[in-house]
Design a protein around this nucleic acid. Structure first.
Lengths: 319, 319
DNA sequence: CTCGATGCCGATCATATGTTCAATGCAAGA
DNA sequence: TCTTGCATTGAACATATGATCGGCATCGAG
């Protein structure tokens, strides 16, 4: 197992003075093209220390490095995806044998979002592993960027706690309920509860949303978090479900199924999602292909971040 | 003389296939943390070729690397400047003995602008060396970013030609006149000439503008380009001028002087400039300090890019 | 067709960089 | 006070990287 599985734990840069040093070193190193030795002399530090400062700067996101691949057909697949599904944008991360895909997808999604978001922007976040991984990669840059989070569903607090997003600058407006409750009545009561209602309203005003794609595999996050049983998933599958968006299951054309489950959810509806200008879906893997296809056919998302293999699958099965 | 004086000449990446390779290599190198050797094996290239691809990627701006220093007091001076003059933002580039300041200021300004601008944005540009240098640094990234330029004054075509900004994607709307003409009548006629008028109108709708700061030193750009004589400058100085904004001279409080010259200009007026939300001034050097002070006191710009020494001078003389 | 020029390529080498490790300083707890 | 553990430091080393150089192919001009 390579070390690439490990997601950097985004150490906090506490010391203002150190930030200053890192910034200064980074300038000299990356912009002025000086060597670490020269910088060390200049700043009165050991060369090793400079090396470590730069390393820390990269890890914390103070030093960010962006690849401007977006427009004219960089990874050809990106263009193909955009064309085939009428997307607003797409990212395809190249496959590497031996490196786990999820963190790499997360990194790509984080990078794409950081390009879209502007200070004081609002980012609506959905549910699932991909969302969580992506946020982890954005975390280091958050403190500088005055971006607020708002959840699109209940049940996110379960995994958002460990991303280190609570800072003085960034507010996370999370819906303080589970994703699913036991009765439609309770769900409705919660939805009209002032604070919950407020957050739901806020979520659909966001210009940008980040979502995962739920598959109907046995390993689906919904099941693992206990919001759904495998039996239910199987039932939904028989009724044509290929995936879910914020707990709402849809068929291969992206049409939302009429399921009792949906009335038990505390979440923004797919219809509302369609009104958010930029909906970024991050997902990869063979088991997600059908789910992604449905999502895109139904125009439930307009930006896709995935890996090479999945992209090829999508284009092949596109019909 | 060190090599740092040299501004990279931004080679054009013509070959789509090469862009693809660079992108892929960059991903593996910077995001996956692989070594150039591994990448070479994986892509079937020689190690040296990978090294060269990455180099090219950095030079062309395909690979961009940004330092997130903006907010909480990174270079403390930035915060001090923002506080002292009520700026929207500021950048202070650290001083290095032996490296020329102008290109480094340009780089910093380019980086700041790239952070502010979004695709399909309009960037209004002023007059002077600093503007030109900054544009040169932005040029490589332009082709990808669908940003249009619009000039705030006449006379820019003289120096914009060599920045390589003419691409299929980017339009430069330049005012096709000199900055100054010989009579107020001619100036007025030109200003109401449809195309000129159109560009002037467009310029003041831009959300972001980039300007230099004209000093009243003998070496002022206005003089060097022949728009002004040293005698005139001396006269203006006696009347209290400390600098100029797009050819309009102002005093130490930033108040525009009542000069005949101003009626000979084809340029956006300072009053109009105040309506542009983000006016970025790039300037450094002892001879510019008074000019910058006036500019800031008069709120003629709200974002400053300068160097360490100048920043300290500004704060000392602030009063 | 020949010649020269130009640009691309890879080998070699000097150097820059990051890793490993042992030593040191520091702080909390006994 | 002493001790133990943790974090930080710099030295030595192994490795990754980029500069220099000579060879090769391509291309255009004579």
């Amino acid at each position: 197992m390579s070390t690439a599985e490990v997601i950097p734990e985004s150490p906090q840069v506490s010391d203002i003075e150190e930030v200053e040093l890192i910034t200064r070193a980074a300038w000299h190193y990356y912009n002025d093209g000086l060597t670490q030795n020269q910088i060390a002399d200049m700043l009165g530090l050991s060369r090793i220390k400079v090396s470590r400062l730069l390393e820390k700067g990269r890890q914390t996101g103070l030093i960010e490095l962006r690849i401007n691949s977006p427009f004219e057909g960089c990874l050809g697949l990106q263009q193909d995806l955009i064309g085939a599904f009428g997307l607003a944008d797409a990212r395809v991360v190249p496959a590497v044998e031996g490196l786990a895909a999820p963190p790499r997808i997360g990194r790509a999604a984080a990078s794409l979002l950081m390009q879209q978001l502007v200070p004081n922007d609002l980012l609506a976040i959905g549910w699932g592993e991909a969302t969580s991984t992506t946020l982890r990669f954005m975390a280091p840059v958050f403190p500088q960027s005055h971006i607020s989070l708002v959840s699109l569903t209940g049940g996110v607090s379960a995994y958002i706690g460990n991303t280190g997003l609570y800072g003085p600058q960034n507010f996370a407006h999370l819906i303080p309920t589970p994703l699913r409750v036991s009765s439609p009545e309770l769900a409705e009561m919660l939805r009209i509860e002032p604070y919950v209602h407020h957050v739901l309203e806020m979520a659909i005003t966001a210009r940008t949303a980040l979502i995962g794609v739920g598959s109907v595999a046995r390993s689906a996050s919904l099941v693992r978090y206990g919001y759904c049983t495998n039996d239910e998933i199987e039932l939904f599958t028989r009724r044509g479900a290929v995936g879910d968006l914020l707990g709402h299951f849809y068929d291969r054309d992206g049409a939302i199924l009429d399921l009792d489950l949906h009335r038990h959810l505390i979440a923004v509806t797919p219809d509302d999602m369609r009104r958010i200008p930029s909906v970024v879906a991050a997902a990869a893997g063979p088991e997600k292909v059908e789910a992604i296809l449905g999502l895109l056919r139904g125009k439930l998302a307009n930006t896709l971040v995935t890996d090479e293999e999945t992209a090829r699958d999508l284009l092949r099965r596109q019909t």
